[in-house]
């Protein structure tokens, strides 16, 4: 839909969590041009690019051995849908953290990927600094939100709330945002950095970040519960 700057703050740092091993990154993109550029940028900044993959199956196959901390994943892959790759990566133990790096205008996919466990989303046109910052934050589990993603997440909560719950169904209640979380997400969607949001709401930046993280966590949990419920229902149906 649009290009986006990262709305969230954070300082640019080295490609390593302070005083620890360099971040192990795997880059998945079907365009060699992007794969190499991203890998080079990350390598230059001190990350260790442990693997690259040009398609989804290769990515899923190589992920366990690569043991990456962060998988930088393009959703537009030739063989498997990026969302499916994300889902399969999440099934690994330990699961890598996934940073979706995708072209603008693939918003439905981005939402699905985030619901199935991706930690963050960045548009491809984001600058090198934004990318490094996003990888660094993804590595420690901080969600990387663009304003676009915040808008999608807000919309998803409203969609879930508006969905009629069939009577007598075993589906869990739709997750809801607290007032504070809604407030924070709206500000993220309007392009404010965490620091600015913290100033405006008189909170600590860490608290703002926790709110953002919670909004994602609830959505991912709901998604997992729904999947399990679906699987059980299907399983029971098949046997009966």
């Amino acid at each position: 839909m649009t290009s986006e700057g990262t709305g969230s703050g954070g300082t640019t740092g080295e490609g390593a969590v302070e005083g620890q091993q360099p971040i192990r990154v795997m880059v998945v993109d079907d365009h060699p041009m992007w794969r190499e550029a991203v890998a080079r940028d990350l390598g230059d900044a001190g990350c260790r690019v442990v693997a690259t993959a040009g398609d989804g199956r290769e990515a899923v196959r190589r992920a366990p051995a690569a043991a990456a901390d962060v998988v930088v994943l393009d959703l537009n892959l030739p063989d498997l849908p990026g969302v499916e790759v994300c889902r399969q990566l999440m099934a690994h133990d330990p699961a890598p953290r996934v940073l979706v790096l995708s072209a603008s205008g693939e918003h439905a996919d981005v939402l699905e990927a985030v619901k199935s466990g991706a930690t963050g989303y960045l548009v491809k046109s984001a600058s090198r600094e934004e990318l490094l910052d996003a990888v660094r934050r993804t590595a420690v589990g901080d969600p990387v939100f663009t304003p676009g993603l915040a808008g999608l997440v807000l919309g998803e909560y409203r969609r879930l709330a508006a969905e009629p719950v069939p009577a007598g169904s075993r589906s869990p209640a739709a997750p809801q945002l607290t007032e504070r979380e809604t407030e924070v997400l709206r500000l993220v969607a309007k392009g404010l950095a965490y620091r600015q949001i913290a100033d405006r709401l008189v909170l600590s930046p860490r608290t703002v970040q926790n709110h953002v993280q919670n909004t994602l966590g609830k959505l991912q949990l709901h998604n997992r519960v729904e999947l399990v419920r679906y699987a059980i229902e299907r399983g029971l149906d098949d046997e009966g």
């Binding site: 918003h107 676009g148 999608l152 807000l154 998803e156 409203r158």
Partner: peptide, 8 residues
């Protein structure tokens, strides 16, 4: 100009 909107 960044546009953020629901997915639906």
């Amino acid at each position: 100009v960044t546009l953020s909107a629901p997915g639906t």
